[in-house]
Nucleic acid binder design. Structure first.
Ligand SMILES: [Mn+2]
Ligand SMILES: [Mn+2]
Ligand SMILES: [Mn+2]
Ligand SMILES: [Mn+2]
Lengths: 218, 218
DNA sequence: ATATATTTTTAGGCAAACCTAAATTTTATT
DNA sequence: AATAAAATTTAGGTTTGCCTAAAAATATAT
């Protein structure tokens, strides 16, 4: 079944908020995430439920069904493939791509997705380090840990950052990108901020807020 | 001003039907072209007119204003750039691209269009031979003539074909593509059908209907 | 010139997706 | 357990873009 852009955005939002455990997602979370009001969300949840894309019991939040998950994964696949395309082929920077990918992810054409995937040589991660689901919706999972949890003196490689333009521009400014080698020189126990050595060159102090949005591999 | 997909499709349709002279386009023509009803068109014409995208006087058809033309040209530019991309980069065939381009043409991002144009190395014609307007909306005009008007014994190069999937598949089947060299061996004066020699190799008989949809350069 | 046919517009409705305000249910606090 | 607060749902509207049926205007044919 072909869905409207709106339905696709609801599915994607529920998918992202449910996390790996497919936990129940609340009406308010969805509303906040989509920039709509709770009343509008309730209305849409009834429609999604009628289509068996979600399990919905009044006042109890929602979970995606297998069908809903499958559709959400396809949208995520398209979003991330397009982001990869924009960076690798069209020379966009990583903070410019999300908004455009939000539009491109809704283009309906199976052949387009598969040809794009081939053209890009089947990338496994998007420019922010998020895994790209394969045609069947399977996501490669890597074991990452948040930079905020890395102990003093340890070294780590940046593998994933949160896709938020402001954060991304800031990271670019201080010289952090996917693949950067970080050494945690010092952790401030008061505010959780940390002093980093980036690629063995520059020392930079980052807030806990920033450290929460960077994931690394030791 | 950002327009809805629907408004963009109306502008594009009016643009295509108005032709080079910016002739008035009728309500029924638009309805037929968009697969909507005349009543819906009338309603939309009022909105376009209120936005000064068209000149509209009841019962008199419409013409695009400069602003309307400019917007239509941008959509046409995007449509044709995406078609070029699909064929040249993603290995689509010329009959598979129109529907996808109908969706892609509505992606709103100026930077995307310009980066795509650069990535494709500023193509001047799409896969059917239609000229791609440049950033300013300027279209390269070539002097072509319809194959139906080519006199017996003459040779001509195929430069443009109508973007209709069924026609395109048929042309592929009989070996006609952009750049093919055609010799008009014989014209049937009864039904206007013609016998062609394609690239000096194959002889093929085509109907007047087909000949109307091929344009050539002598 | 009048009658007929065609085109276009108007009037009244519908579905999708949003909204605000009010009612209801659930959760948290005393 | 009763009350207050927060979350969710319901009720009633709005806008966009479509529809059918009827009315009005224009074009065509006798
Ligand atoms: Mn993104
Ligand atoms: Mn989206
Ligand atoms: Mn096309
Ligand atoms: Mn379109």
């Amino acid at each position: 079944m072909i869905q409207t852009t709106s339905v696709e955005n609801y599915l994607k939002t529920i998918f992202h908020h449910a996390g790996i455990g497919n936990n129940a997602v609340t009406t308010n979370e969805i509303a906040a995430s989509l920039g709509t009001k709770a009343a509008s969300v309730t209305e849409m949840l009834k429609k999604l439920s009628a289509q068996k894309l979600i399990r919905y019991k009044k006042y109890n939040g929602v979970t995606l069904t297998d069908s809903g998950t499958k559709q959400a994964l396809l949208i995520v696949r398209k979003h991330r493939l397009w982001e990869y395309f924009l960076v690798e082929k069209l020379e966009f920077s990583w903070d410019e791509i999300h908004e455009v990918a939000e539009q491109l992810e809704h283009i309906q054409s199976e052949i387009l997705v598969e040809r794009l995937d081939s053209f890009l040589e089947n990338p496994k991660f998007d420019p922010h380090g998020d895994p790209i689901p394969d045609k069947k919706g399977i996501i490669k999972k890597t074991d990452l840990q948040k930079l905020i949890d890395v102990t003093e003196k340890k070294e780590a490689i940046v593998n994933l950052v949160t896709d938020q333009p402001e954060l991304l521009r800031y990271l670019s400014k201080i010289g952090i990108s996917i693949g950067s080698k970080l050494r945690v020189i010092e952790r401030n126990t008061f505010d959780q901020s940390m002093l980093l050595l980036i690629n063995g060159k520059n020392k930079v102090q980052i807030s806990a807020e920033i450290a929460h949005n960077i994931s690394v591999q030791l």
